[in-house]
Design a protein around this nucleic acid. Sequence first.
DNA 1: AAGGCTACCTGTTCGC
DNA 2: TGCGAACAGGTAGCCT
Length: 284
Amino acid sequence: MPELPEVETIRRDLHAHLCGSTIHGLSVVHPGVVLGTPETFTDAVVGRRIVGSGRRGKVMWLDLEDGHAIAIHLRMSGQALLVDEGAPRPPHTHLIADLGGRRALLYVDPRRFGRLEIIDPCAPQASVLLRNIGPDALSADLCAETLRTAAAGRRIGIKQFLLDQRFISGIGNIYAAEILHRVPLGPATPAGRVTRAEMERILEQTHAVLGEAIAACGTTLADARYRSALGRSGEFACMLRVYGREGEPCRTEGCTARIQRRTSGGRSTYLCPACQRAGRRRRA
DNA sequence: AAGGCTACCTGTTCGC
DNA sequence: TGCGAACAGGTAGCCT
Ligand SMILES: [Zn+2]
């Protein structure tokens, strides 16, 4: 469930609290969450100090002093939690890192879709978690023209395009819907037919939405499943304009329409039928 | 090669 | 209250 803002919030927590800490011990409770063998993983981290962190899209990593790093992809239900050594362990705790000072880092993941991998951050192509991840949505190098080139000739909807981590990484189902409502542009607009001006607006709104969501420490929905590494909720849910708001009034100034939910390819999307009407595409 | 579908998992909520 | 169905913030791997 975590998208870029939630992963970035967690990374910042971990960075602030773990830099300089040494991993004294590691227990892999469920081997399936680790890429490679648990023994290899354990050998790579035990006794090593954490010296930094990084992130691309929804993948984050903790740099170790020897140049390797622990990469984490939380997928649908993963959590990285920094807890007191003696605190009770939540159900579905699959990995425990002993950090000394009575602290532990837990990897908790009910659905077990998430993965951890020892990587060399300088060689992302060699990493299973990173090799298909394109430029970060907030990267200064990413420009609208690059996205237009990637979208050229594609008939998939622009929403599906934004969700494809090879083209732009970090956007998930919530923020894709929010970005397209703000542009505004219908989610089914063929990616290859998005104009230069529209792609520029998409990138602008991507920066705006993700930036605001990071400032709010991410989106914690009513089910309260997303928490930062320190267990804190995000505050962006009350700022959502379409996601999860089926039947509620559009929050665009002057718009009287109600938000609709549509399903395609097994996923829900939310939109305002008035603001995002096909054929009502704003001119540059 | 693009694009669509399914599998991977568990937990929660919804409709009857 | 019970019970199956639908749904959940993601993506890799197949197939056509
Ligand atoms: Zn509207």
